[in-house]
């Protein structure tokens, strides 16, 4: 164990010592600013601009990704808000409503089958996002390589992809949860009439919406993680490849 640790300690020690002595880039003249941190940068505002631009220019492709997210999130929101409606009716104490509920096969707390379907749909959606983002990365190999030739760090590329995914995630999750909630409420009204809305516990619906938005956003980021990592690790030499 001790033998395993020792070189590591030595190594870190060496590198900090090196950092002290080479506070400047080897190529810099003596009179130049030695402040390394400010030497290669991508301000957040600029990265936001770039991500927005690439989202816009690949609008159709992005809409496909976002649509899969919308569908999955709206299904989640539909199930959650549907459960809210049912529990609102269940706790209303109105025997007719409870009877009507039981006729639809309602179980307090939601059925296991429903939960599995939701999880499955989210899983399928994540795989879809990973697939779409991997395609996007492949398509943009040259762009990423070029940026690296211009001096972009791995972290710039990672940040661009994460930013794009979070924008897609926000859009998809917001739209999806709103659609899902609206459909759930409409279906509830169809089944139980206006009582479905009047008995609706609003704060629970709010929580459900919040939850679905969070899950959608999380899935979008989760889906982009691996593709973004591949993109960030790509070597700039790829930009030189002549074949399309």
């Amino acid at each position: 164990m001790v033998h395993g640790v020792e070189p590591w300690v030595e190594d870190t020690f060496l590198s900090t010592e090196q950092d002290m002595s080479k506070n400047r880039i080897p190529f810099q003249n003596q009179d130049e600013q030695p402040d390394i941190a400010a030497q290669v940068v991508l301000p957040f505002k600029k990265s936001f601009e770039i991500s927005l631009k690439s989202l816009k220019s690949r609008f159709l492709r992005n809409m496909v990704t976002v649509t899969s997210l919308i569908l999955a999130v709206s299904f989640l929101a539909y199930v959650l808000v549907g459960a809210d409606i049912s529990s609102g009716l269940y706790h209303s104490g109105d025997l007719d409503l409870i009877k009507a509920l039981e006729k639809t096969g309602y179980e307090p707390g939601g059925s296991a089958k429903e939960r599995w379907i939701v999880i499955l749909s989210l899983l399928v959606c994540t795989v879809g996002i990973i697939n779409a983002q991997l395609m996007a990365v492949t398509e943009r190999f040259r762009e990423i390589g070029t940026m690296k030739c211009l001096g972009a760090l791995d972290s710039f590329v990672l940040r661009l992809f994460l930013l794009e995914a979070s924008m897609q995630g926000t859009t998809g999750a917001l739209l999806g949860s709103i659609f899902g909630a609206i459909i759930a409420i409409l279906v509830g009204m169809l089944r139980f009439g206006l009582d479905a809305v009047t008995m609706l516990p609003l704060n629970e619906v709010g929580m459900s919406l919040f939850y679905s938005i969070g899950v959608g956003f999380g899935l979008s980021l989760l889906g982009v993680l691996y593709p973004a990592f591949i993109a960030a690790r790509m070597r700039p030499i790829e930009a030189m490849r002549t074949e399309e």
């Binding site: 880039i25 080897p26 190529f27 070029t146 690296k148 972009a152």
Partner: peptide
Amino acid sequence: FELAWLRNRKIGYIF
């Protein structure tokens, strides 16, 4: 980091 600096300031690439 230094390589990025090199590519950014010291070398210009034309493809």
